[in-house]
C-alpha cells in the first residue's frame, strides 16, 4: 500500500474508519516509519489541544444571569387563549340574542328545548370557537414571526444610511397614496 493521504491519517486517529481501512492503515504504519511518525505527531498535538486550560467562570455568574432574566417570560400563556376564546363565545351569544330579540331564557328554550340541551349546545359552540381562535392566533403568530425574521434579514444586508433612505421613500409613497385616496373618496367638501 502506498502512503495514505493526510486526511486518512486524521480519520484514522478519529476512530471513524471502517475495520477494513483501519487494517490497511495499520499494516502500512508497521512498515513506514515516516507515516508512523506523522500519526504520532498528530496524536500528540490533538492530545495537547484537547487539554487546554479552561476559562474561569466567576462564582456569582449564575446569579448574575438569573437577575437579568425577564420576569415571567417563557411561562405558557394558555390561560390567555382560553380567556380570549371564552370572551369571544360570550360576545357571539350576546350578538345572537340581541339579533333574535329573545330573552336569555327564550333563547335557551329555542336552542334546545331543555336547559341541559342548551348547555350542550353552548359547550359545543365554545369548543369550536376556542379551536378557531387558537388557529387564528397560531397563524397570526407564524406570519408575524416570518415578517420580523424577513425584515431583520433584509436590514442585516442594508447599511443604516440606506435603511433610513428606504424608510423615508416608503413613507412618502404611502402618504401620497393615502392623500390621493382621501381626495378621491371625499364627496362633501369639494366645489
Amino acid at each position: 500500500m502506498s502512503c495514505p493521504r493526510i486526511s486518512d491519517l486524521y480519520e484514522y486517529l478519529d476512530g471513524g474508519m471502517s475495520p477494513q481501512k483501519v487494517n490497511n492503515i495499520e499494516g502500512h504504519l508497521r512498515v513506514c516509519p515516516r507515516c508512523r511518525r506523522a500519526v504520532e505527531e498528530r496524536r500528540l498535538i490533538a492530545a495537547a489541544a484537547s487539554s487546554l486550560a479552561p476559562f474561569d467562570v466567576p462564582e456569582d455568574f449564575p446569579e448574575r444571569v438569573m437577575s437579568r432574566l425577564p420576569g415571567s417570560q417563557p411561562r405558557s400563556r394558555g390561560w390567555l387563549a382560553a380567556l380570549a376564546a371564552g370572551t369571544s363565545v360570550l360576545t357571539l351569544i350576546l350578538v345572537v340574542m340581541i339579533a333574535s330579540g329573545k330573552s336569555g331564557l327564550e333563547f335557551m328554550k329555542g336552542a334546545g328545548g331543555t336547559f341541559w340541551e342548551s348547555i350542550k349546545t353552548i359547550a359545543l359552540i365554545t369548543a369550536k370557537a376556542a379551536s378557531f381562535v387558537s388557529l387564528v392566533g397560531r397563524t397570526l403568530r407564524t406570519l408575524l414571526e416570518a415578517g420580523v425574521k424577513g425584515l431583520s434579514l433584509l436590514t442585516s444586508f442594508v447599511p443604516p444610511g440606506a435603511q433610513v433612505f428606504i424608510l423615508v421613500v416608503v413613507l412618502g409613497v404611502l402618504a401620497t397614496f393615502f392623500y390621493g385616496m382621501r381626495k378621491k373618496l371625499s364627496t362633501g367638501d369639494q366645489r
Partner: peptide
C-alpha cells in the same frame, strides 16, 4: 488544503520541540 497530500519526507517533529505546557500555549 494539504489534506489530499501524503506526509512529506522532511516533516519536522513539533511534539519533541516543546513540552506539553508550551505546546498548549502555542496552540492557543
Amino acid at each position: 488544503d494539504g489534506l489530499t497530500l501524503e506526509v512529506p519526507d522532511d516533516e519536522p517533529s513539533i511534539s519533541h520541540a516543546f513540552e506539553l505546557g508550551e505546546m498548549r500555549r502555542r496552540i492557543e
